[in-house]
Design a binder for these strands. Structure first.
Lengths: 239, 239
DNA sequence: TCTCGTATCATTGTATACAATGATACGGGT
DNA sequence: ACCCGTATCATTGTATACAATGATACGAGA
């Protein structure tokens, strides 16, 4: 049975610095800290029970990851992802996930392939039951397996970044649940990898991303952003 | 839509934190700090005339960029780029530069196109004269123009990172000077963009990267790494 | 001589003190 | 009332002090 809660880099997790960084990061990704919110060093430090120093170091990293924006001498703000960012990321990802699938075909281990198969079948089960939360988690894990299987630290790192980055946006539209369709595409990709057909895996993974994006658009990506922009404008007007 | 602040790079460069970060980064990229060298916070701080705090913050960022590796409670080490990393980066870049060229075709401004044309013609001049240093600089600039022209902060950021990252390796093989051939490919890309043929620009930019990589291989990439590995082994034996 | 435990030291990790900066509120001049 | 300079405060930027950690050297015991 695959353990889907496996976390990366254990050593880092247990150092204080790592803990602070990951905690803030998590809070941004899961929406605890909202977009455009100002993050204050002391406040965050108190929340996590540390001084400003580790918080500042975490901020610097988060800035580089694009999760916050630091304006010198002023403050740190959770970045918003614009509608265009979302589109760009999906277009970039569509290419890289394709490449990743191709490389994974060449390098995947027996264990990884098994986890992939298991993932697909479990996901089908959850889809039937309508357990969307688990389904979403399996969806994420499927991609991670592929990232790990591609045998390229460089590509893996890039894709993990992008993946986590868009999780924030996906949350907004998740309710619309393309879960089942998505899983069927996963299955096709898995089968192509299993059959050793790299070209096909590449094409399928590519289209998987395109479809995911189109689905987001169809399910009101524009509207979500239009609403947000309105709220933002009103906030700015108040000032 | 575009809520990007143009100033960010500049202000960052002139703040102390930014200065420290960029200086260390530069020293890694230009080889002042060699691969696998241990960087000590106090030493670097003294070199730059600052305390450990800004240096540490810079270290955290550099780690995320993949330029150094930090082992907790132990030290920071300049990362080596393996032969495989080089290959992976070029494969990834070949896709993204293609995408970039396509987008640039759609969004390039008159000024940017003019600079591109100028770049190509100047490069031809320098190539004839054999001024390799200027030629290399123009080469870099050509790509930067394209990154800026693609109208995607996301893609621009990714490509600039990769580009700088491989500069370190390119230095090692630069003497072999593919300068002229490279410039001819630039010209073709520029013409495709000018003609508004995005598909062709994409394909040309894609091949441009593949060719650049193949050229590196042909000109002894393997040998360079074999030599380095030998040196490294000897060093390890001494310990 | 060799091994192993301990003392010592260099270095990183964290907290805090102080300086610089930017935002805000207040008050005098018009 | 309005403008504008200044005082004040909150917050970030930097330096330093102290704690924790890991590497090294040394010496006692076998």
């Amino acid at each position: 049975m695959g353990n889907y809660n496996v976390k990366e880099e254990v050593t880092d997790k247990y150092s204080l610095r790592g803990r602070v960084f990951h905690k803030i990061r998590e809070n941004i990704l899961n929406g605890t800290y909202e977009e455009h919110e100002e993050l204050k060093e002391v406040t965050i430090g108190e929340e996590l029970g540390v001084s400003r120093t580790p918080v500042r170091e975490a901020f610097r990293q988060l800035e580089l990851e694009g999760l916050i924006r630091i304006i010198p001498n002023k403050g740190a703000y959770v970045t918003g992802i614009t509608e265009k960012d979302v589109k760009d990321i999906y277009m970039i990802r569509s290419l890289l996930e394709g490449l990743c699938a191709k490389w994974a075909t060449e390098h995947i281990t027996k264990e990884q392939l098994e986890e992939m198969e298991e993932n697909v079948y479990l996901a089908r089960f959850y889809a039937e039951k309508g357990h969307m939360e688990q389904l979403a988690q399996l969806d994420n894990r499927f991609h991670e397996i592929m990232y790990e299987a591609c045998n390229s630290k460089m590509l893996e790192h890039q894709l993990k970044d992008f993946h986590e980055y868009v999780l924030r946006v996906r949350k907004k539209t998740l309710a619309t649940a393309r879960g089942n369709a998505s899983n069927k595409e996963h299955e096709q990709i898995m089968l192509a990898i299993k059959a050793g057909d790299g070209e096909r895996a590449q094409e399928l993974a590519h289209m998987h991303m395109i479809n995911a994006y189109e689905n987001m658009v169809k399910n009101g990506l524009h509207e979500i952003y239009r609403k947000e922009n309105l709220e933002l404008e009103q906030e700015n007007l108040k000032k």
